[in-house]
């Protein structure tokens, strides 16, 4: 089956993560169509599910990974501070080290 993904909605990192998780059950071919869209071709390597279910799962994963990406991007600095405070010796970090 073939899906068209809007690259302005889902970036490459998010699409790649979904492809990674689907790769256990599908051979996946990615083709960039233009600046804004990408074609994803999924070929089942195990038991085949209905196309609508696969499509639903794919877009569900896209949305979930997009949310995870937002959380990861917004928390990168605080995560660094947290780990430095927990494990680095003499590491003085403050809110000035958090960047917008």
């Amino acid at each position: 089956m073939t899906l068209i993904i809007d690259k302005s909605v889902y970036n490459d990192s998010v699409i790649s993560k979904v492809v990674y998780w689907m790769s256990g059950d599908y051979k996946i071919v990615r083709t960039s169509l233009d600046e804004f869209s990408e074609q994803i071709e999924l070929i089942a390597t195990k038991a085949e599910s209905s196309e609508s279910l696969v499509e639903e799962k794919f877009f569900q994963l896209l949305n979930d990974f997009k949310l995870r990406q937002i959380v990861a991007d917004e928390t990168r600095d605080i995560k660094t501070i947290l780990y430095a405070k927990a494990f680095a010796e003499d590491e003085e970090l403050s809110e000035e080290d958090i960047h917008d």
Partner: peptide
Amino acid sequence: ISEQILPPLIEVYAERLREKK
């Protein structure tokens, strides 16, 4: 989530992480 940019209990947060590891 935190209502301040740096959680007021950041030291507790870090200590709890240290405990987990």
